[in-house]
């Protein structure tokens, strides 16, 4: 009541024009084609680039395009552009807060910095070892633990 009284012009009656919607659809379709096209030519285009760098570039391009598409959908199709600041804040909130979860990469990134007996980073393995894997490189596989074979 107090809130809308202060909003002399209320935006909730805004009708998004037909051609704005069509233009947005076209933009989304074009972006879709671009992201697919890049995925097809990327292996050729990034031939000389180190794999880690190529992966980073691919990720940034694909996610960047997806981000732009999402913003277009949110702003025009969902009409957030024509809504109040509160709605805009809530539209952003979930996506921003999702990024908080990436804090857990501080764990995954540094978990193997500590030396743990029977487990060294030299094995170059990203996960913890399976229970039936040898404790140390060069040791025979463990026979006392049985895990059903997944390789059929």
């Amino acid at each position: 009541m107090s809130e809308h009284a202060s909003h002399a012009h209320d935006h909730s009656h805004h009708i998004t024009p037909f051609f704005t919607l069509v233009k947005t659809l076209m933009l989304l379709a074009v972006l879709m084609v671009v992201t697919i096209a890049w995925a097809q030519i990327a292996p050729e285009a990034l031939k000389g680039v180190p794999p880690a760098m190529a992966s980073l570039i691919n990720n940034l391009i694909a996610m960047g395009i997806a981000f732009v598409k999402a913003v277009a959908v949110i702003m025009i199709f969902m009409g957030v552009k024509y809504q109040s600041h509160v709605v805009k804040t809530y539209a952003a909130l979930g996506f921003v807060w999702f990024l908080m979860m990436f804090i857990m990469f501080a764990d995954y990134g540094t978990r193997h910095w500590e030396s743990v007996r029977g487990w060294t980073p030299e094995t170059k393995q990203m996960a913890l070892p399976r229970a039936d894997e040898p404790f140390e490189p060069g040791m025979p596989p463990r026979k006392d633990i049985h895990i059903p074979d997944q390789h059929h």
């Binding site: 809504q83 109040s84 709605v87 809530y90």
Partner: peptide, 25 residues
């Protein structure tokens, strides 16, 4: 009034969509 009702619904829906974002997050 109608304007208040409409914006309340939009805010409520967006608050729900925040939960959906975290859900798929």
């Amino acid at each position: 009034d109608l304007a208040q009702q409409q914006e309340t619904y939009v805010i409520g829906m967006w608050a729900f969509l925040v939960t959906e974002v975290m859900f798929f997050g």
